[in-house]
Design a protein around this nucleic acid. Structure first.
Lengths: 121, 121
DNA sequence: GTTGAAACTATAGTTTAGTATACTACTATA
DNA sequence: TATAGTAGTATACTAAACTATAGTTTCAAC
């Protein structure tokens, strides 16, 4: 399949590999993006709901990170003409697909923690 | 199996999920760590070899990042009593296992790029 | 005409990350 | 005695990320 050969060819070259991986790292770069994405994996949310779910984020950071995620094609922002206006944020298809990446990170993190505890006792 | 149930229980709770995922993000946090890990995936390397393979890294950053990675159980540092002394850095088992995380990132990144190109044409 | 809700923005400051450039310690060989 | 190789450290700086706190807009209900 094409996907396999594309990955294979990138994996052969250390510098291309790093560039492609960094593309992904940049999308979740920073202190808050993983939290926002994780929160949105449980369903679309309004600005105020995100603020409540991510307790210590400032409004400035929340709106900046949401703008970044929107610019990167991770979330879509929808304004509803209710009174007062409400805004909903939802993951794109790519955004939802990112759960697989987070799950693999989670799994590795759990194993890694075990291996560290095992090696220091 | 235990691993499944552990993951399932973490995935049920948004805040625990974020905490566990952040453990992993912190390990590769910063501009250079993914590059160092990627380079070491191709085999153990000496300090000077890493410096050549990662062209723009300063010696200060390289030694800082290597210290971080060592402290996090990602690499082991071995001093050989050659003349002059040589130092080798090698990934731990966890470090090598991290390739799976990077591969999933790579794969998602390639798909994501396609979906962005597809949506703007 | 004041209050309140929603979704932010503005300004200023602190903290952390990263860069630039020079220097050190050790020892072997010329 | 000077030079070179290896693996760094030291000092000072700039830039990016993040925080704190207050203010803005819009419209409706009281």
């Amino acid at each position: 399949m094409k996907k396999i050969s594309e990955m294979e060819s990138i994996r052969e070259c250390s510098s291309n590999y790093i560039l492609a991986v960094n593309d992904t790292i940049n999308v979740i770069h920073g202190k808050w993006k993983a939290a926002i994405i994780s929160s949105l994996l449980f369903g679309k949310k309004r600005y105020g709901e995100l603020q409540k779910e991510i307790p210590k984020i400032t409004p400035r950071m929340l709106s900046k990170e949401l703008r970044d995620l929107e610019a990167n094609g991770m979330v879509v922002r929808t304004v509803h003409d209710t009174i007062p206006v409400t805004v909903e944020y939802e993951l794109t298809q790519s955004g939802y697909a990112f759960q697989h990446v987070l799950d693999v990170m989670l799994e590795w993190g759990l194993e890694h923690r075990k291996s560290i505890i095992g090696s220091t006792k």
